[in-house]
């Protein structure tokens, strides 16, 4: 079975779906992402669906589930690269991608994520591991 690769770029996990996914592949991605978020402490997930020529209710539901799982694990999901024909079809199908943020492309998605994670870490330098061990060790 194919697996969708998950790349780590800084605090973000990038998933680019390039294959016509079987349902099992989509479910596997859901599991893999959860594990990678926990393993890497990623704060954001970008799912690039430029390569998908359709999004049916199963894939749509999987994307929503991934977003929910990520949120529980303290990471935000942004779906990018949806083709216009796919967007039109999704709406007519009656699928609302609940809880999913979208952006036009990977670049905009990255911008969105860095903006939404910035206010959380204004004291980034104070939260260095070194500082932490100094204040907790004595």
């Amino acid at each position: 079975m194919d697996r969708v690769p998950i790349l780590k770029i800084g605090p973000v996990l990038l998933v680019s779906i390039q294959v016509d996914m079987q349902d099992q592949v989509a479910l596997q991605l859901q599991e893999d992402l959860g594990e990678r978020i926990v393993a890497t402490g990623a704060k954001g997930v970008i799912i690039d669906i430029t390569g998908l020529d359709i999004v049916d209710s199963f894939v749509g539901r999987t994307l929503s589930t991934i977003a929910s799982i990520s949120r529980v694990l303290d990471a935000e999901t942004i779906v990018v690269g949806m083709r216009p024909a796919v967007a039109i079809t999704l709406v007519e199908l009656g699928l609302s991608l609940n809880g999913i943020r979208t952006a036009l492309n990977v670049e905009r998605g990255m911008e969105l994520l860095s903006r939404s994670t910035e206010p959380d870490s204004p004291d980034e330098f104070d939260l260095d591991l070194d500082d932490l061990s100094e204040t907790t060790s004595p």
């Binding site: 349902d23 359709i54 216009p84 024909a85 079809t89 199908l93």
Partner: peptide, 17 residues
């Protein structure tokens, strides 16, 4: 058209499943 192709392929995907 591309949009109509997308619609019929999506419908077929739902029904095949």
């Amino acid at each position: 058209s591309l949009v109509d192709q997308t619609k019929v392929v999506t419908a077929a995907s739902e029904l095949a499943r």
